[in-house]
Design a binder for these strands. Structure first.
Length: 249
DNA sequence: AAATTATACAACCGCCGCATT
DNA sequence: CAATGCGGCGGTTGTATAATT
């Protein structure tokens, strides 16, 4: 069970609290968050301490405006991974998951939705008759339970190695990252090889939609057509009832 | 200049997976 | 096997600040 028996401080952190937390982390290291409040002399819960350190006080954090490259990477990774903010942040040096999430929600999401509605009058969210369903792409395989090697550390190590090796002799991305079942961990490959993008983006949609093949048209062929007409630049599919039934009979 | 609205982002909450007991 | 506690995550909220009316 969680939850303190006595009331703990909430809300914005003071400079004094920040100093206490910093000193504590410097002395004991980041971790054992349940001990931090006692060690630091703070009346804060473990989660609050952890969040404050990871999102604000840690010296590794990069602050300031997102560069064009970072924005581009966020868009591409979100298209692939969906709202896996920690995973996305893991590819952006110094950026936290909270930063990326906030940036996406405030800068990219709104612009994206607005642009989609401009382009297609069917996509007016205020019209209940349309019953628009927003399909956010998600990866096929990401569970740490199923594939423990799927972690930020794993990606950091292996993508770096792959990037280094690919500079001299480019190899197909599908050769680079396989899980223990021999399946392609394509979302990692994509980060290394943009040539694979189109194919993998299609694959990225299959987690949310039943793509059982029926008739002559394969699921991916169906998706290609649907995606072309209904997927916005950030990878979210907007389906009305007719299209929804088509891909999810 | 004041009031209102929009934006940005720090922080909280509830849930989950995993390890330990 | 169940209960418990922990770290971690994503969704959401609260609030300070900026922009607009």
């Amino acid at each position: 069970m969680e939850g303190p028996s006595v009331s703990v401080r909430k809300g914005a952190w003071t400079e004094e609290e920040d100093i206490l937390l910093k000193k504590c982390i410097e002395k004991y290291g980041a971790g054992e968050w349940h001990k931090v409040s006692a060690r630091a002399g703070l009346n804060r819960c473990r989660k609050s301490c952890r969040l404050r350190w990871l999102n604000y006080l840690s010296p590794n954090i990069k602050r300031g405006v997102f560069t064009d490259d970072e924005v581009d990477l966020i868009i591409r990774l979100h298209k692939l991974l969906g709202n896996r903010w920690s995973l996305i942040a893991g590819r952006l040096t110094g950026r936290t998951a909270n930063d990326v999430k906030n940036y996406y929600n405030t800068h990219l999401l709104k612009k994206n939705v607005d642009r989609s509605f401009d382009l297609d009058p069917r996509l007016n969210p205020s019209d209940p008759k349309l019953n628009i369903k927003v399909i956010k792409p998600r990866p096929q395989i990401l569970s740490k339970k199923s594939f423990p090697i799927c972690s930020n550390e794993y990606m950091k190590i292996n993508t770096t190695a792959a990037a280094a090796s690919s500079t001299s002799t480019p190899t197909p991305a599908s050769d680079n990252f396989l899980n223990e079942n021999g399946e392609i961990m394509w979302w990692i490959n994509l980060m290394m090889n943009e040539d694979e993008t189109d194919y993998q983006l299609q694959q990225g949609l299959t987690d949310d939609i039943d793509l059982s093949v029926s008739g002559e048209q394969t699921a991916n062929e169906k998706l290609e057509v649907i995606e072309e007409d209904n997927c916005d630049s950030l990878g979210e599919l907007y389906l009305d009832d007719e299209l929804w039934n088509m891909v999810n009979p």
